[in-house]
Nucleic acid binder design. Structure first.
Lengths: 247, 247
DNA sequence: CGGCTAGTTGAAGACACTCAACGAGCGTGG
DNA sequence: CCACGCTCGTTGAGTGTCTTCAACTAGCCG
């Protein structure tokens, strides 16, 4: 359980107002957690473009809920804290995902970037006035609900190794998730893991030591080969997939 | 882990086509898990009204996703199965909640009624053609996402007793969830628990024995008094709330 | 070099799981 | 009517997985 306060770097709000340059789709697969092809912005709907550094806070638990955010590029994590400091990372989001939705006046989750990120914010009034924005948000929510369902299965029913394997599979484009394309010829990939062990643990409902042990276990099994920095080579994607418990 | 096949009673589809009687809001608090005041049906939007017995299957994992469902009355549980039979109950839904949403052609969850239920189904074409229905669904999804977030915290970070306490608090109208009204004078309530221990366990990511032990523990502490059938008296709601870990 | 953070690994312990026995409640049928 | 079978819930004993606590290493930056 992470009891120590986590560093929250000062907000870097380089928020130039809306400009009409088209969103960049090239970097959609940052982190491998772009799950969907919905990083398109409804034409002519003025949202405010924001640029964030890696590991900056976009919203804090308790902030006034004035806007809804859509990720164009980069990765964001949503988390919640229990009063005694236990943290759960709720969702890992990539481009096309939406966050900042709440039924109350305040945000009930914390949102931090994992990588440098381009985010569009729509304030409440804008959203309420635009069916196009609403439709886009609804489509996003649907996909994220399904991801939350899968994550509930992971948290409720999977072993530590299954959790870590599932997490790693999620980082592989086109595999593991809904649109898994199945085994391919040369079945190995290198992925970036831009989370610390503590963050992975908080996402998977484990401790950092258990996550570390699971990684080591998979490495001893020959399924993982550690690379430079946060690079990990998955030696046999299909074999790893069978460890997830989902297939 | 529940390995044995669960009984799925024959589907009781008493689906009289749309009639114009207004939805009954009286029974909104069936089960205490009506979290929101959104059991209203957009006027003039023809959905198909369905009546279900308790414990009948509304949708099965793998069914074609032809419609979206909104609960008018009663309680529904959504669940997912892992290939080896482990089950996770993903959401407990009350009146006003929506289910059957998916990004794929097939449903990825199973939906069963817990109590007799009145449900309206809107088929895909209807939903796509009606902004009013879409807006209603979006509003529901937002609330359900927040509930899923809370549940992820429970599954990832709470102890067995905290989980059971949280579950019980959820059954108390106006308490525990988002709109908690805080302590009241005579702080005890009787709630119905229309789930078996196995179902509670599958919802909370525990085993039925652990759930049973947690109930017994809370009873020995004087927080619960068992009643007839599935009735449980919560002797001190505020005290139980402090066991949830959330406050 | 020293200090810091992130990650790994070991040993011991706690919490939840597994397996098993037993009891209460309920409907069926002799 | 009671015996019987069945399901659901409770409780105990033993086990296993994950956590906790702690030591140690690698990499990075001043």
């Amino acid at each position: 359980m992470s009891l120590e306060a986590r560093s929250t770097r000062p907000l870097h709000n380089d928020n130039r107002d809306f400009d009409s340059t088209p969103p960049k789709h090239d970097a959609r697969w940052t982190l491998g957690i772009c799950r969907h092809d919905r990083a398109s912005e409804p034409a002519g709907k003025p949202g405010r473009h924001l640029d964030f550094d890696a590991r900056s806070t976009v919203i804090d638990e308790g902030d006034d809920a004035r806007a809804v955010y859509v990720i164009l590029e980069g990765a964001v994590m949503l988390s919640k804290l229990l009063p005694d400091g236990r943290r759960q990372i709720i969702e890992l989001l990539g481009s096309g995902d939406v966050f900042g939705l709440t039924t109350t006046r305040q945000h009930d989750t914390c949102a931090e970037t994992l990588t440098p990120a381009k985010i569009v914010s729509y304030d409440r009034a804008t959203v309420e006035g635009s069916p196009a924005v609403q439709a886009m948000i609804a489509e996003c929510m649907k996909a994220q609900m399904c991801a939350l369902h899968d994550h509930a299965v992971l948290l409720g029913r999977k072993s530590a190794i299954e959790r870590v394997a599932t997490f790693l599979m999620r980082l592989v484009p086109d595999r593991g998730g809904q649109g898994c394309i199945g085994p391919v010829a040369k079945d190995q990939t290198s992925v970036r893991v831009p989370l610390t062990r503590q963050e992975i643990a908080d996402y998977l409902g484990l401790t950092l030591e258990t996550v570390s042990r699971a990684f080591s276990h998979l490495r001893r099994e020959g399924l993982l080969i550690y690379g430079r920095h946060d690079e990990v080579m998955i030696a046999n994607v299909c074999k790893l997939c069978r460890v997830t418990g989902s297939h």
